[in-house]
Write a protein that binds this DNA or RNA. Structure first.
Length: 107
DNA sequence: TGATTGACCAACT
DNA sequence: CAGTTGGCCAATC
């Protein structure tokens, strides 16, 4: 099982309308300092599998840092808003409220 | 084959 | 308070 596959497993388990962070996923995989690779895995995933809800993964500030890797720079925001997550200026509103921590929820 | 680089984060200067 | 640095894994050059 590769690192990226583990990441995809977690990302696919994120409930609709919830979001998590790169760091949280990395921490769940016991690689707290490997949060960079989570983003890297997302980049590969969107080329390989398109079933990965990468829009539910943001950085620790709740900012849509990876929006540039979607079709358009607003795709990520629109998908989140479709699921009931409000986004303003590329930031999640009520970030803590929608935050879904795999370390807690999947335990 | 060794060096560089990410959709990051925390600690340090 | 802002800029730099080290760390992690895998892929690309």
């Amino acid at each position: 099982m590769n690192f990226q596959e583990q990441v995809w497993e977690v990302v696919k388990l994120i409930p609709k309308g919830k979001i998590t962070t790169y760091g949280a996923i990395a921490n769940y995989l016991s690689k707290a300092k490997a949060s960079r690779m989570v983003g890297w895995a997302m980049n590969k995933s969107h080329q390989t599998f398109k079933n990965i809800p990468a829009h539910r993964v943001v950085n620790r500030n709740g900012v849509l840092t990876g929006k540039n890797h979607f079709n358009t720079t607003v795709t990520m925001q629109q998908k989140l808003e479709q699921e009931g997550v409000k986004v303003k200026n590329d930031k999640i509103i009520d970030f803590k409220k929608h935050f879904w921590d795999p370390n807690i929820e999947l335990l």
